[in-house]
Design a protein around this nucleic acid. Structure first.
Length: 268
DNA sequence: ACGCGGCCCTGGATGC
DNA sequence: TGCATCCAGGGCCGCG
């Protein structure tokens, strides 16, 4: 569910409510997600003031007066804020703030993860190897050309590799390649610069548009207010049977275990 | 070193 | 209606 645009949507949604607030209480209904929460988790949040909310790849980064709180939503995680939040079946973490606001982390599949670190962020194991943010100028055709030079894997699989570019997941990888008119199975190292340029342009365009729409909802994505996103209504190929541009039948197949969609007429 | 398959977990959709 | 099966947007690990 949550790829870069969804995580960005969550960050923008919670920031106004939590920045500047001090944590007064932490409750763990379940202290283990994908892996156990770090030792001293509650204590490291207690009485800390939230300075800033940002995003790196698919990680939410909450800067505390002492340290950073990293949250990954996995496939089914959500962070919601409110004064009257009801705990749901899979709400695992609750954080109370000094104005009475409450933050919930809910995650049915528990593929999410959290950590709190006082070391420099860039040295954190989860962030250390991650590639450039796609919406920055560090992500460009020249970079892609170098990075893909020895990659024989299909371009769609490459786009989902966080080491290559941060935050692109399964849905947006298909959407990006549709907009770039490149077939997902094309070997990454065989793509010439003009098409790499198209892929870069399409990546930025798709992600920006998705952020502007508040992210996508498949099954259960909800933003910080518990509302679904609306970008899925704009999907061009993902989960579609017919191409919106040319009416051709959309092809779907598995690549590295993930479902891929493309239009055989629009994408060459 | 690289690329891929398996796996972690639950819930929803589908089929019998 | 009830039960079994399959599938899902992420990312780590281990194999060949």
């Amino acid at each position: 569910m949550p790829e870069l645009p969804e995580v960005e949507t969550v960050c923008r949604g919670i920031a106004p409510a939590i920045v500047g607030r001090t944590i007064t209480k932490v409750q763990l209904w379940r202290a283990s997600l994908r892996e156990p929460l770090p030792r001293g988790f509650k204590k490291q949040l207690q009485a800390k003031t939230i300075q800033k909310v940002s995003r790196r790849a698919k990680y939410i980064i909450i800067e505390l007066s002492d340290g950073h709180w990293l949250i990954h939503l996995g496939m089914s995680g959500s962070v919601t804020v409110g004064f009257q939040l009801q705990r749901k079946k899979h709400t695992h973490v609750g954080v109370w703030l000094d104005d009475g606001m409450l933050l919930h982390y809910t995650d049915p599949r528990r593929f999410g993860r959290m950590d709190i670190t006082r070391a420099p962020l860039e040295s954190h194991a989860w962030l250390a190897g991650i590639g450039p943010e796609p919406l920055t100028k560090n992500f460009n055709a020249k970079y892609l050309q170098t990075a893909l030079k020895n990659k024989t894997m299909p371009i769609k699989t490459a786009l989902m590799d966080a080491q290559l570019v941060a935050g692109v997941g399964n849905i947006y990888a298909s959407e990006i390649l549709f907009l770039a008119k490149v077939r997902p199975q094309t070997a990454a190292n065989k793509i010439r610069p003009p098409r790499l340029e198209r892929i870069v342009t399409a990546t930025k365009a798709v992600l920006k548009k998705a952020i502007a729409s508040g992210g996508s909802t498949l099954k259960d994505f909800v933003d910080s207010q518990g509302e679904p996103g609306y970008f899925q209504t704009q999907w061009q190929v993902y989960a579609r049977a017919q191409c919106l541009q040319c009416n051709a039948a959309i092809i779907n197949f598995k690549q590295s275990g993930r479902m891929t969609y493309y239009c055989p007429r629009c994408q060459k």
